[in-house]
């Protein structure tokens, strides 16, 4: 009997009524790796004699802080947990297929949908907090009332696009490599796997930048697109 092909990740186990899919398990592993690495690197931080790993961590955090400062014009310390974690998590997920047998969580719509929803609610909550409820809602009437439906539709579609773009790119790249492997063997897919590094970095950067732009637009620090 042939297994039915599906875009959904396979269920690994159930916790009561809750099915635990492969992308969730992979996410846990990635979380463990990221948190473990962070804990390892931050055990003995030194302001005067940093280790190489500390230097790498400082470079990564500095890069993310600079990105937040440049794109959002806001204090990096406030948005680093969200924006920085988005980038690190998505990058790690996107590069996880380099380990044979690992399916990237970002190839599933549940993962990117969760990320998109987090960005969506963050955007609106910060917008309301920054401008007030009426002030924020008034932004949907700009430039005129006629644009209200379009603004609402734009809010929904850009979040949907954010979710679909990431999942679609990663999923399609995975499928492409799988097809090539099934057709031409082991050596030919290597360039495509190398290309997947670039794709994974670019997609993570795009998602992070767009999230920063959306949040900045809601706060008024970035012109709303």
């Amino acid at each position: 009997m042939m297994e039915k092909a599906t875009l959904n990740a396979p269920i690994v186990f159930h916790v009561g009524p809750v099915p635990i899919g492969l992308e969730v398990v992979t996410t846990w592993v990635i979380m463990a790796v990221l948190v473990g690495g962070a804990w390892y690197g931050s055990r003995r931080l030194s302001a005067t004699r940093p280790s190489r790993f500390q230097v790498i961590l400082e470079m990564v955090v500095g890069f993310l802080g600079g990105l937040i400062r440049d794109v959002m014009g806001a204090d990096p310390a406030v948005f680093l947990p969200l924006i920085g974690t988005l980038f690190l998590y998505i990058v790690t997920c996107n590069l996880s297929p380099l380990i044979p047998g690992v399916k990237p969580p970002t190839a599933s719509f549940e993962t990117t949908g969760a990320l998109g929803l987090i960005v969506f609610f963050t955007v609106h909550s910060l917008g309301v907090r920054k401008r007030g409820l009426l002030g924020y809602l008034r932004t949907y009437l700009e430039p005129t009332v006629v644009f209200l439906p379009l603004n609402i539709l734009g809010e929904l579609t850009r979040t949907f696009a954010l979710m679909v773009r990431l999942a679609g790119n990663i999923m399609s790249h995975e499928l492409t490599i799988a097809v090539i492997i099934s057709l031409v063997g082991l050596l030919v897919p290597i360039p495509f796997m190398a290309l997947s590094i670039l794709v994974g970095l670019v997609q993570a950067y795009i998602f992070t930048i767009l999230a920063a732009v959306f949040i900045g637009g809601a706060m008024g620090t970035v012109e709303k697109g």
Binding site: E23, M31, L86, S108, E110, T111, G113, A114, L115
Partner: peptide
Amino acid sequence: ALALQAVNF
């Protein structure tokens, strides 16, 4: 899965 991933994040 969506909820779990949000919580995970």
